[in-house]
Design a protein around this nucleic acid. Structure first.
Length: 304
DNA sequence: GAGATATGTGCTTGTCCGAG
DNA sequence: CTCGGACAAGCACATATCTC
């Protein structure tokens, strides 16, 4: 049973928004690609774990703190007799393993960080956390290589790796394990979720200013600035995607608040953000409908 | 001349209403 | 039902006028 779901990380969202509105540097674009790929892998794994029928609690995407050390867990499954800790990697292509190091196979062979280091650290911190919560269940930690196009040559047999071809069998194994969850498990899930930190302390976005961002409305499907507004319907001239103006307005409110959390949202801010593509009247109505209004007339601003 | 009060201007929203 | 035009309302700021 899914206990805590995964949300798109703020860092990824910010980078995705920025990618359409400013020219990212080569390094930033690569970072965005890595973030997106990583997230896609995690979501893919979520789809697989969601099919587990046996009694267990699935906690996705945890950011926890123990002994002043912050650690992130991609997926945690609380089963009756075991805590499963998963670190999901969406590596693609050929790699090889050599003396506890991972390298890309294609020249120039470059070393990538061995995910085992992260896993070992997470497991240790998780164990301490569980102990502090009075839980002594054994932890089984695994690196999940979710991508079917990934090959790791020279993998030692004893490493806690779960390759794409093994995932279904592994989950089937969890599925056929009997045992019942008791209150203790639920309390544990509750306590862990309560300790989840909302904002990653190490998130450093590229610096950006409101004025340097390209304004206007982007298509939610293809991300291009090719939307023509006709009454309530907004249609992308590139991909043909149709969106109601109300949805488009609120999508842009969300984007603007993610990029500039301190910016006050009012009719004018959104009008300017959309470059006047949608009448203020319509914007005002949407804001009123979906948000809480503070103040009156030109001093109105809106909050969720 | 300084502060208080009155008036004007700009701006946005509320309401009503017709069109689609 | 939603949108947008017309009109009214009314607050803040700027400017004008008044009082001492």
């Amino acid at each position: 049973m899914l206990y805590k779901s995964r949300t798109t990380p703020r860092e990824l969202e910010v980078y995705q928004y920025l990618n359409t509105r400013i020219k990212l540097s080569e390094i930033e674009r690569k970072h965005l690609y890595t973030l997106r790929k990583g997230f896609e892998g995690e979501v893919q794994f979520d789809r697989l774990t969601s099919s587990i029928q046996s009694e267990c609690l699935i906690l996705n995407d945890l950011l926890l703190q123990q002994n002043r050390s912050t650690f992130q867990i991609d997926t945690l499954i609380i089963a009756p007799y075991t805590i499963h800790l998963f670190e999901v990697k969406n590596f693609e292509g050929d790699y090889f393993y050599d003396y506890d190091r991972l390298y890309t196979k294609i020249p120039p062979q470059s070393e990538v960080t061995n995910p085992l280091i992260q896993l070992t650290r997470s497991e240790s911190l998780l164990r301490q956390l569980l102990q502090s919560l009075g839980c002594n269940l054994p932890i089984q930690s695994l690196i999940v290589f979710i991508n079917p196009e990934f090959t790791l040559y020279q993998t030692p047999i004893n490493k806690p790796f779960l390759f794409h071809s093994q995932i279904n069998r592994f989950l089937e194994n969890i599925n056929t394990t009997s045992g019942k969850l008791i209150n203790h498990h639920k309390e544990l899930a509750e306590q862990i979720t309560a300790q989840h930190l909302i904002d990653a302390p190490f998130f450093l976005p590229p610096s950006y200013e409101y004025d340097e961002l390209r304004k206007g409305n982007t298509c939610e499907n293809c991300g291009l600035f090719k939307i023509s507004v006709a009454g309530t319907k907004c249609i992308c001239k590139e991909c043909g995607k149709m969106e109601l103006s109300d949805t488009l307005i609120m999508r842009n409110v969300k984007e603007l608040t993610k990029l500039f959390p301190d910016k006050k949202i009012d009719t004018n801010t959104i009008y300017e953000w959309l470059e006047g593509a949608i009448p203020k009247r319509t914007i005002g109505r949407s804001l009123k409908k979906h948000m809480n209004c503070n103040g009156v007339r030109q001093w109105s601003h809106y909050e969720f």
